[in-house]
Amino acid sequence: MNSEKIHLSIPAKLGYEKFAMETAVSLAALYGLPPARFGDVRTAISEACINAMEHGNKFAPGSSVEVHMQVREKILQFKIFDKGKGLARQIPKSNLRRKLTGKEPARGWGIFLIEKLVDDVNYFQDKKGNVTQLSFNLPVHID
């Protein structure tokens, strides 16, 4: 069961990630992702788009972040494209105790949340730019 591709282009401006979130949840609902996971989709897409806007495109005026959505072989897949060079190889793990004691900034939960909420995440470069690929497994129904 494969879906048609959906391509969104959103301005690299905070707030526009909500368009991607809601489109992603509509696709998830259409292809049977359990409603209990809709929040996971919303948060993961939101954080990936915000990272792309901020760290990839540096909020450059007029620039955009592309979000491609598709269901392939029972996997709900989202690719978020930005103009950056990708993540540093070592991403420090966010730690609340360190943040509360001022040893690291209060910010920096995006990657932590994405990696906790999705079934698979990959970061890579392709000809369109830097890609964050998020995957959610759809339930398999046995008749």
């Binding site: 909500k18 939101s46 209060a106 910010r107 939960w109």
Partner: peptide, 19 residues
């Protein structure tokens, strides 16, 4: 009905101050 990572960081800043 919407909280993102930046919103969480605001709560963490407030929690630090309150502690």
């Amino acid at each position: 009905d919407y909280i993102n990572s930046a919103g969480l960081s605001v709560l963490i800043t407030m929690l630090t101050k309150s502690q």
